[in-house]
């Protein structure tokens, strides 16, 4: 049984955003997906993503700018950032805010998270 502890239940409201996965190459809220709907699909959660080179860049960028406080929203923020960069490797700030929208950070650390995504895009140049 794989460890999927990072797939959180966003209180079944699809609000918090922390319950996130990538499904069929697009971002989904895992608490809003019935298991029967993904039969035969490729599902990537943070557990799978953190084995990748892209994650290493994202992890370092989040750490470098202290983009993590309590950490609850971080899995959703990181997978939303990955989904954004995979479509748009060099987003501007507005595009990053739009790409991360739906992920609520109750520590209100949004600016640091946006800087982390900018840094990941710069330092991972060519990975996305």
């Amino acid at each position: 049984m794989p460890d999927i502890s990072f797939v959180l239940n966003g209180k079944e409201t699809s609000y918090a955003g922390s319950a996130t996965e990538r499904l069929l190459d697009v971002l989904h809220n895992s608490c809003c997906v019935a298991i029967g709907a993904v039969v035969g699909s490729c599902v990537v959660t943070l557990e799978g993503y953190r084995e990748t080179e892209r994650y290493a860049v994202m992890d370092k960028a989040f750490a470098d700018v202290s983009a993590v406080q309590c950490g609850f929203c971080t899995p959703g923020m990181i997978l939303a950032a990955e989904a954004l960069l995979s479509k748009n490797p060099h987003p501007d700030e507005t595009e990053i805010r739009e790409g991360l929208s739906g992920n609520l950070c109750r520590c209100t650390g949004y600016n640091a998270i946006i800087r982390a995504v900018q840094k990941a895009a710069e330092e991972g140049n060519g990975l996305w």
Binding site: C31, C32, A34, G36
Partner: peptide, 22 residues
Amino acid sequence: PYAGGTDLMVENRPDVKYLFLK
């Protein structure tokens, strides 16, 4: 009937069976 699930999963009906349409 279940298309995207974003509303149905929030409703979280007990013992429901879905008809997946995607």
